[in-house]
Amino acid sequence: MFNMFEVATFTIILSAVLILYRLVVGPFVFNRILAVNFFGTKTVVIMLLVGFMYGRPDMFIDIAFVYVLINFTAVLAFLKYVESGRFDN
């Protein structure tokens, strides 16, 4: 029936609902920043899981790599804004 990957995906999606709630409702910017970061991590995991489900993990690891990187950048940008409100310093 369900294999391990699907169960794992299911669990992660459930937890994603909780994060999504924090993301949408807030109430503070920091809640959302954390939610974004958290969601990025989950995305990476889901991707890898999907990769295994489809039986071609090699293809999906590259994507996951990019995600790790990019999510880092996005969060950096948020934090920089919250910290100083500008980017040219």
Binding site: P27, F28, V29, F30, R32, Y81, V82, E83, S84, G85
Partner: peptide, 10 residues
Amino acid sequence: KGVGIKPTKT
């Protein structure tokens, strides 16, 4: 509600 933070300019 969300705007808890005032960006400090410097």
